[in-house]
Design a binder for these strands. Structure first.
Lengths: 229, 229
DNA sequence: CTGGATCCATGATGATACTG
DNA sequence: CAGTATCATCATGGATCCAG
């Protein structure tokens, strides 16, 4: 009967991990950082999770004040979103992701499921941590059927968010399918949008600025020389 | 045979959590951040872990390049220490600990094992995140039989490290047993060192500066008014 | 004594199928 | 769409034992 999964230490890191250390828990938070999602939205992004486990994580995160549930009477959909405390996990997740970018040698397998949000988050953090100055570049990334995003630079700061449907035009607009966007972003330069099945619109100078900025996103393992040239 | 604990996503956060997401893994890193430790040192700090689990975590962290093992022929002790990649986890652990300090309402149970290192780490992060200006205050914390530490301020920066045995004197020296130090630090002011069984030495002005600085360490849940006065 | 290994019990998670 | 139900497997905890 003693299902005591707590560490029983007086250490706030241990107590934090009691709440967030279960498998999939931080990935739920990751996928809610860009906005509320439905159960099936989360299932999509976390391929491999079973509905039972996702249900349990959501209930636990709700009990711990990280996630809120929005059930409206007479509506099928249930929306999950982060509480303010949940949003405060953004910097911790950012540090973990950056550590992975710099210390995990593994690179994408040819058939690994990948969601644009996860690549774009890595891109944003890499640009910010490398202090790439993006001026005031506002880039829209459209992935039909999956989602529309904005990657907005303010000097060396980079922000990633979901695009508001009735938002003004961006300086650069990238349109690509899921399967085309990922190789384009994860392959080292020279990047040739057209050849990769990626469409880029905008003023030539803005497009050049964007392509130049993302040169700082070499997802190849550090310490590898460019062999593919 | 398919013990595939990987998420199988192309997301560097997921790949990070494949390495660090197992139970106890980040607590091993936490306890190695202040310097190399032996197997039994780690067992002490992580009360509740079984030797089998600790062994497995250490082997896995070693395989992932986070921990290094130092086995010298003809010596009983085996020392474990962080690799440079392991040290780079400090900021991520710091963010998680800060989240806990601000969002986990639980406070220490009367009989929860607690190690001074864990409290001192929380104190350091809290002072730094609150931008408490400590001037050039150098504080030694001596816990006989457990360890000696230095909490060194450089303006708003606070550093915690193990004390070097042949190091010069500090501005303030705190000497206390494990059982006396923790209540002293975790109880809100007014703190009365003598009454708490804590000895503080140093110039009166330095002692005042230290006691003033740690006023910013209210481990009581946020939003509680001071009842104990 | 330190640094583990062994054996068993159990809870957490995965696979698959099904339902309001 | 948002879960539940059932069964199988694996990771972890508890206790004990062992080698240098």
């Amino acid at each position: 009967m003693d299902s005591d999964r707590s560490y029983g230490h007086f250490c706030m890191l241990a107590k934090t991990l009691e709440r967030l250390g279960d498998r999939w828990a931080l990935l739920v938070v990751r996928d809610l950082l860009l906005g509320p999602k439905r159960f099936t939205d989360l299932m999509d992004r976390m391929s491999g999770i079973t509905p039972r486990t996702l249900t349990r994580r959501l209930r636990e995160l709700e009990a711990d004040g990280v996630v809120e549930v929005d059930r409206e009477a007479g509506r099928r959909e249930v929306w999950y979103r982060l509480t303010p405390a949940g949003h405060q996990l953004q910097s911790a997740l950012g540090e973990l992701l950056l550590w992975g970018l710099r210390n995990v040698p593994e690179r994408p397998g040819p058939d690994e499921p990948v969601h644009p949000e996860h690549i774009l988050r890595a891109l944003q953090l890499q640009l910010e941590s490398e202090h790439v100055n993006g001026g005031s570049l506002d880039t829209a990334v459209h992935v039909p059927g999956t989602g529309d995003y904005r990657l907005v630079a303010d000097g060396p700061q980079w922000d990633l968010r979901a695009e508001d449907p009735n938002e003004g035009p961006a300086d650069v607009t990238i349109t690509a399918t899921r399967s085309a966007l990922v190789p384009f972003l994860t392959t080292s330069s020279p990047r040739v949008p057209a050849a990769a099945g990626v469409e880029i619109d905008g003023k030539a100078s803005a497009i050049r600025a964007f392509l130049n900025a993302i040169e700082a996103f070499p997802l190849a393992p550090a310490g590898h020389s460019e062999q593919g040239l």
